[in-house]
């Protein structure tokens, strides 16, 4: 049993003529916190969307616990337009493009860059609804309350999860009435309710001050310990990334430019160039 949780192999995402993600390969191992960083527009969220089934990558494969879950090669109209490399590598593989809900069922849950809680629902209902995907009841047993035991178990688990996240005191409040930081935390709790093995966090610290960011980092580490999840996150706060992640992947213009431990990445000249720009010699 390998401890490899997620592997992206040569993922390329091309929109029309624009290559948003170019030949990206990365690995996330069991129990790690891995950060994906890069300047604005580098293609980080696009990479996330390729993993979670929102986009269908133009070329490449995604494996989860060594099982291929997404696979594609340039076909149809893309065959002529394709600008990336490795165009022939996956031609003999079966095309796999599951919808996001199927990916989540396999054990990959995500949060969003701009918070997407269910607005008309309370804190409790938000988490409870996320438990729906593993419910065994069908629509009849659920409507006529035949599967009452399962419903009760779901409610108990939800209450427990909220208690662990210190959100139980807000259980009957509307999710959108919570302060911003707590909404972020609720979104993570909701993702955890789907019992994932891998958690994808898209800019969890966006809009937070340094102290909140620090707390969030500790919270993420806590989650990893408590629920045994592996974490892949996109983040812009460098202190958070450097302090808490085990591995860092840096991408710029869709290409992987560096990866390794925080110390290695920090020292990499290409990373510094990507963030600060290159000094032109003639200038």
């Amino acid at each position: 049993m390998s401890d490899n949780v997620l592997r992206l192999s040569d993922i390329t995402m091309q929109f029309g003529g624009v290559v948003a993600v170019d030949n990206l390969s990365l690995e996330v191992n069991e129990g790690q916190i891995v950060a994906l960083i890069g300047p604005n527009g580098a293609g980080k969220t696009t990479a996330f969307n390729c993993i979670t089934g929102v986009y269908e990558p133009t070329n490449g494969q995604v494996s989860f616990y060594d099982k291929v879950i997404v696979s594609n090669y340039p076909h149809g109209k893309m065959k002529k337009l394709y600008k990336g490399s490795n165009a022939d590598k996956y031609v003999h593989e079966k095309i796999l493009n599951p919808t996001p809900d199927k990916i989540t069922r396999k054990g990959i849950a995500r949060t969003f860059q701009n918070i997407r809680l269910w607005k008309s629902m309370t804190v409790f209902e938000n988490v409870l609804t996320a438990k729906h995907l593993h419910a065994k009841q069908n629509i009849f047993t659920s409507t006529f309350r035949i599967s009452h035991a399962e419903e009760r178990r779901m409610r108990e688990e939800t209450a427990l999860l909220l208690e662990e996240q210190d959100l139980l005191r807000f259980r009957d409040e509307l999710a959108t009435s919570l302060p911003y930081g707590l909404q972020r935390r609720l979104e993570i709790a909701r993702a955890l309710a789907t019992s994932p093995k891998l958690l994808l966090l898209d800019e969890p610290a966006a809009g937070m001050n340094p102290q909140e960011t620090q707390e969030l980092g500790e919270f993420i580490v806590q989650i990893r310990e408590k629920y045994g999840v592996t974490i892949l996150m996109i983040e812009h706060h460098m202190d958070l990334v450097m302090q808490f992640s085990d591995q860092i992947y840096v991408i710029d213009f869709g290409e992987l430019i560096s990866h390794g431990t925080p110390a290695v990445v920090q020292a990499d000249q290409r990373v510094i160039d990507a963030y600060l720009g290159v000094v032109e010699e003639d200038a």
């Binding site: 929102v54 969003f112 997407r116 809680l117 008309s120 609804t129």
Partner: peptide
């Protein structure tokens, strides 16, 4: 509840396995 989740935010609902 799953129906209401779709009404409130389709993308989030799908990402949560609905």
């Amino acid at each position: 509840r799953a129906f209401k989740a779709i009404r409130d935010d389709e993308i989030a609902a799908e990402a949560m396995g609905i």
